[in-house]
Design a binder for these strands. Structure first.
Lengths: 133, 133
DNA sequence: ATAAAGCTTGGAGTTGTATCCAAGGTCAAA
DNA sequence: TTTGACCTTGGATACAACTCCAAGCTTTAT
């Protein structure tokens, strides 16, 4: 059993974050010491690592809550459920990526058209473009 | 001179947004009617369009404040200043894009490894991966 | 003349993901 | 034994960019 600071330190997060996850139903440490200190079991630590891995993959905390639900009773679900979630997230990411590429390209075009020199910005093509498209 | 609702409507935003921009120093309508209604001149409308265009290009409101400062006294700046801002934003976007592509690819790999069928998720490779990497 | 639509202000609420703070209890080391 | 590190709780704060609300005034349409 580890105390909150130990587990947090071991996982590179802060105790506050762990309490935050608890408040939001992501990770409920099973035990408390006689004086009320949270005590995390190896299973709790395992679950935290699950959360952090999912987060690193781009899942939101509410996605993760859902994944944990599935994980908690795998037999109630089928592979298609899980794969569906992952693919939905891929699509979501793809949409954002496309949008950001669009923005990046617009900006790059803008930058390319600008001399970028020490000339006064009075005739700056970037500002002109923003002013009147 | 247009009233707030007219200008907002014409630009596809809400009056509240215009007041928000004003409170945040992005757009101060020059005039008020005798009864205190905001009145926007064509220049104000022009500036709003500048703001909205910059926003559509991915600039944050604080970026836009900076661009407006430059725009307001172009002669105090050189092209390099402006181009620098745009290129910094391109880099910022690129960093985010790279990160999101990394996430997308990880998730795609995860999805590809899953049968995605009607089988119980008991042996789901996605959950297994998140559980123990 | 009256009702609906529009305007004003100050301030609160939203979303997501934490992070920080204060007041107080506990524990280990020097 | 005292100091300092750690723990508890509830609640405040942060960020971005709005969005909404209430109470009250003005303008417009019928």
């Amino acid at each position: 059993m580890q105390r909150i600071g130990e587990l947090a330190g071991a996982c590179g997060i802060k105790p506050d974050t762990l309490r935050f996850y608890e408040k939001n139903g992501l990770l409920n440490p099973v035990n408390r010491s006689p004086k009320g200190y949270r005590l995390y079991s190896e299973e709790d630590a395992q679950q935290l690592r699950f959360i952090l891995r999912a987060k690193a993959m781009g899942f939101s905390l509410s996605d993760i809550r859902e994944l944990l639900n599935i994980e908690a009773s795998r037999s109630d679900w089928v592979c298609a459920d899980v794969k569906g979630m992952v693919e939905a997230k891929v699509d979501e990411l793809q949409t954002k990526i496309d949008e950001m590429i669009r923005l990046r390209d617009s900006l790059q075009t803008l930058a390319d058209a600008c001399c970028g020199g020490a000339e006064s910005a009075i005739h700056c093509s970037i500002l002109d473009t923003l002013e009147t498209k």
